[in-house]
Design a protein around this nucleic acid. Structure first.
Lengths: 156, 156
DNA sequence: TCTATTTAGGACAAAAAAGTCTTTTATTAT
DNA sequence: ATAATAAAAGACTTTTTTGTCCTAAATAGA
């Protein structure tokens, strides 16, 4: 549905959001560990998200990544997709036609309308505060293996 | 949403279906021309679809591709995606987690449920007969440039 | 039978996406 | 100041996807 890059980006953001809500900054090594992404690749993704102002980063000992809690409601799945993949993923034609539109629809255009609408609504509705709370409440999970991903508070 | 391979595959299939309804067989050169896909790549895609029994192919002069009209209602978007991309596209987790399920959902699992459901319904509902009729009725279009894609009947 | 046409099949090339590694820069604590 | 830690930045490699090209096999028609 989205690129792997985006998948890692969203997973990382949700994890960082959770830690930020607990008052912790979390570093790259720990992030790639917890979300099961390649460290060197994850670096690039987090850099992009930092440059876009979605994450705050801090170098040096006790450094790492965080997200301002007051920004979490504003940052949604959509924003992260835009930052990492650019705009055209779910806005463009399902058959890749450049001239597809309501007036000049491709054969599956109408069939896709509902899906496209739901998708657009969904990516905007899913914000980081919500998503991080799901993790905190134990209702959702980020791990690949079922082992616990909890990090002791204040002791990153 | 789907791979370019699938996009070409679907576009080609709809075109072939339209021609078959008109009693025409249509060849590779014409297909790649009409749908705006690279000829050498399109060959591979059509071969796959032929091997999966979705298309009928015939070599030699007056050869080309066709689809049995009585099969058109059975062949849907889903079948073509399966033939060309394999199974995992819209069935797997939106965040790429292998252990994501209803019992052990990823953070966006529930958000995705509606989209996933609509998508699944859509790809099964959209069959070739329907899609080809849309073209014939002039309600939908396959072309990139707005030029006419009609082929004279019986004179392929 | 011979030739032209058209798909089948495989090797290869280019481009894009994913991933690795190494050096530099900033920050903290000693 | 110095050493240790962690992100920034960029070069490089691998893998996957997309695309090209060439030869072989089948078929139709003269």
């Amino acid at each position: 549905m989205v690129s792997r890059r985006c998948e890692y980006g969203i997973r990382a953001s949700i994890l960082i959001a959770r830690e930020s809500l607990k008052g912790n900054r979390i570093n790259l090594r720990l992030i790639s560990d917890k979300i099961g992404s390649p460290l060197g690749y994850t670096t690039k993704i987090l850099q992009s998200l930092s440059n876009e102002g979605i994450l705050l980063s801090r170098r040096g000992p006790k450094g790492g990544f965080e997200i301002a809690p007051e920004a979490m409601e504003t940052i949604n799945f959509h924003g992260i997709i835009m930052a990492l993949d650019g705009g055209q993923i779910y806005s463009s034609c399902g058959l890749g036609l450049s001239e597809c539109s309501e007036d000049h629809p491709c054969p599956i255009h109408e069939h896709f309308n509902l899906v496209r609408a739901d998708l657009n609504a969904m990516v905007k509705k899913a914000n980081l505060l919500q998503l991080a709370h799901g993790l905190i409440n134990g209702k959702t999970f980020l791990n690949t293996s079922k082992k616990n991903t909890l990090i002791k508070d204040k002791k990153v």
